[in-house]
């Protein structure tokens, strides 16, 4: 089901862990949606010196987190900000169609960690952001309370009201 690159990152995920004194933390998804990722970044002179992540999720979610951490490490904040879900999926040499939403999560978690870093650096409190869920069918981002996907009308399972 998964290609050798994905399987390699799933079996030997890079940069698993937590940075206790991280400069930026980004958390996306939740176990009800199926996947949850937390990214930690350590930044020095505008460069992402260290990345760690924790992931609750399937093989694809773990592989995505791993490759995103690799892609971000050593990059400047500006470069890392340009990492998109498409680049993630390409770096993994493809994901099964129904797993593409996992690549969104990985890129999103990294971007959230970068946002968190920027806000902390500017001395602002991180603004509260609405939790989101991705539609498993069409990949569209949906508000947590959505019962049906706002894009394709797919029924979103689980307790989406929090």
């Amino acid at each position: 089901m998964y290609n050798p690159t994905v399987l390699d990152h799933f079996k030997n995920p890079r940069n698993v862990g937590v940075i206790e004194d991280a400069d930026g933390v980004g958390e996306v998804g939740n176990p009800v949606c199926g996947d949850m990722m937390t990214f930690y970044i350590k930044v020095k002179n505008g460069v992402i010196e260290d990345v760690k992540f924790q992931t609750f999720g399937c093989g694809a979610a773990i592989a995505v987190s791993s490759i995103v951490s690799e892609m971000a490490k050593g990059k400047t904040i500006e470069e890392a900000s340009k990492i998109t879900n498409k680049m993630v999926a390409e770096a993994l040499e493809g994901l099964p169609k129904q797993k593409m939403h996992c690549s969104n999560l990985g890129a999103d978690a990294l971007q959230k960690a970068i946002q968190d870093y920027k806000m902390k650096k500017l001395g602002q409190a991180p603004k509260a952001e609405a939790k989101k869920c991705y539609c498993p069918v069409c990949d569209l981002e949906n508000p947590m309370e959505a019962e049906f996907c706002t894009g394709c009308g797919e029924h979103l399972e689980g307790e989406h009201t929090h």
């Binding site: 939740n30 176990p31 009800v32 199926g34 996947d35 609750f56 999720g57 399937c58 694809a60 979610a61 129904q98 498993p136 069918v137 399972e157 689980g158 307790e159």
Partner: peptide, 25 residues
């Protein structure tokens, strides 16, 4: 787990039994 089903949905059986969606994963 939802991640296994092709529809990516948590098992309707477990949800009907009152198992919460995160645990069912």
């Amino acid at each position: 787990s939802a991640c296994i089903s092709r529809s990516l949905k948590v098992s309707h059986v477990m949800l009907s039994m009152g198992v919460d969606a995160a645990t069912a994963q």
